[in-house]
């Protein structure tokens, strides 16, 4: 007799875009701090990608409210044990960091400041990519409420999709020459492997509770669209031939499709 919240397509898109924004931002920050000067393009692309995406997140979140004009009411209170409350604050703070980092990404003179800002902002990037999963796992719903690793899975997916999105932009602007491309593809592969492992543990821990996605109407999309086409195929392609740009790009597109399918099947399976 439980009631579902009716978080449908706008929230599916928000979860997907928020994962990419967070993933792109923390990839940019880590590349900036731990990479070489030649990784500057990855950093710039990551920050400049995160900014419009987090803006889109804000628009989607507000538009999905029952009374959008009251969105500021989210900032009346702060409940640290409540993912919806810290989420509203977190998206806002991440947005501020995205603005500052995107601005600083154009300046080499302020590189030290940019790295400092990036390392703090990165925390909110990780937060944005994962809190949406914890939001679902702290509901009274079947499947969602039992999925202790929902946040961990969304975070790994945010990382892999964020890195895939950065790869694609690199390719489109012609910045995919040499090591930047190889590094981001390597990082993306590591995220895919982590996502596969987390997904395996996620399913094993859930057992029968995962049936809304592993069996029935959503199963073909889950197994085919996420596990197969969204993780195993791009991982295989990337390992074999990531030096071939077209293959790397195809792999990145598939990872993005998989990330979307993950949010879609998780949200819609128990709400339809």
């Amino acid at each position: 007799m439980l009631k579902t919240p009716g978080w449908e397509w706008m929230i599916v898109v928000y979860f997907f875009v928020g994962g990419i924004a967070g993933g792109a931002y923390f990839t940019a920050a880590l590349a900036d701090t731990f990479g070489t000067r030649r990784d500057g393009t990855v950093t710039r692309v990551g920050y400049l990608l995160a900014l419009p995406l987090v803006a889109l997140c804000g628009i989607l979140l507000i538009a999905d409210l029952g009374v959008p004009t009251r969105f500021m009411n989210m900032l009346r209170v702060f409940k640290f044990w409540n993912p919806m409350s810290i989420g509203a604050w977190g998206v806002g703070i991440f947005g501020l960091f995205s603005v500052v980092s995107a601005g600083l990404s154009f300046s080499e003179r302020l590189a030290t400041l940019r790295r400092g800002v990036g390392l703090v902002g990165m925390i909110f990037g990780f937060f944005l990519a994962s809190y949406t999963g914890v939001l679902l796992s702290t509901t009274a719903q079947p499947f969602w409420g039992e999925a202790r690793l929902m946040g961990a899975l969304f975070l790994a997916s945010g990382a892999s999709t964020g890195m895939a999105a950065v790869s694609l932009v690199l390719l489109l602007i012609g910045g995919a020459t040499g090591e930047g491309w190889r590094k981001i593809r390597w990082a993306d592969r590591s995220s895919m492997v982590i996502e596969l492992v987390v997904l395996g543990v996620f399913l094993a821990a859930l057992g029968a509770a995962a049936r809304p996605i592993t069996t029935g109407h959503f199963a073909p999309l889950f197994w085919g669209g996420l596990v197969g086409a969204g993780l195993l195929v791009p991982l295989g392609l990337d390992i074999v031939a990531h030096r071939v740009k077209v293959v790397g790009a195809l792999s990145a597109v598939l990872v993005l499709v998989g990330g979307f399918v993950l949010r879609y099947v998780v949200l819609m399976s128990i709400q339809s």
Binding site: Y131, K183, I194
Partner: peptide
């Protein structure tokens, strides 16, 4: 658990950019 996942992907990214770099 999410923090654990963040550490793993973060280390992956650090390793990717550092090692090759």
């Amino acid at each position: 658990f999410s923090l654990g996942s963040a550490l793993l992907v973060g280390l992956g990214a650090i390793f990717a950019f550092r090692r090759r770099g």
